[in-house]
């Protein structure tokens, strides 16, 4: 995120995944395990309490992958509760859904998502999409968007 003073409690190598489908959670684990073996993934299958746990976490994740279709507290509601806490401004939230319906996209942005990612069916494509999202936000977190400049060693 672009917060001027970065949150020292954020660990950009930690990703929280809020996903109720066991198959999708397994696919995310498999895909990111392949492309980003260095990431620590933490899974939760419901939205209730996610924002509060983020607030309390000693190591806050740099990225939250949020499924929009959750039982109980919906993805959009989780998003709104995270965004209602200014302490969590530096946590990037990527909404992850199987819908490309424009109304849903608009509503998700309005609720404060940093990215809206379409969840493909094909696993290879799924891996590519996840990798694209994680790479993008990791580059951003490491200042990769600030144009040509000397960088710490990469890979």
């Amino acid at each position: 995120m672009s917060g001027s003073a970065r949150d020292p409690r954020i660990d950009h190598d930690v990703v929280w995944v809020v996903e109720d489908s066991a198959e999708d959670a397994e696919a995310i684990q498999r895909a990111l395990g392949r492309t980003h073996p260095g990431l620590t993934l933490e899974f939760t299958d419901r939205g209730a309490g996610v924002a509060e746990r983020l607030l309390e976490a000693a190591r806050r994740p740099g990225l939250v992958l949020l499924d929009l279709k959750l039982p109980g507290l919906s993805g959009a509601e989780v998003l709104r509760s995270i965004r209602s806490m200014p302490e969590l401004n530096d946590v990037t939230v990527v909404a992850f859904t199987s819908s490309t319906a424009p109304d849903e996209v608009d509503a998700t942005y309005a609720a404060g998502a940093d990215s809206y990612i379409y969840k493909p069916v094909n696993f290879e494509l799924f891996t590519t999409v996840l990798k694209g999202a994680v790479d993008y936000w990791q580059r951003r977190a490491k200042g990769g968007d600030e144009g040509p400049a000397a960088q710490p060693p990469s890979s």
Binding site: P102, V105, S115, P120
Partner: peptide, 28 residues
């Protein structure tokens, strides 16, 4: 291509079709 075609075909409204194309492609 297969998934994008599916998304595109799910709407016969031009604007919605186009928005779906743009959405499916990022960051794929």
């Amino acid at each position: 291509l297969a998934e994008a075609s599916l998304q595109m075909d799910s709407s016969l409204d031009v604007e919605r079709t186009v928005r779906r194309v743009a959405r499916t492609a990022v960051p794929a």
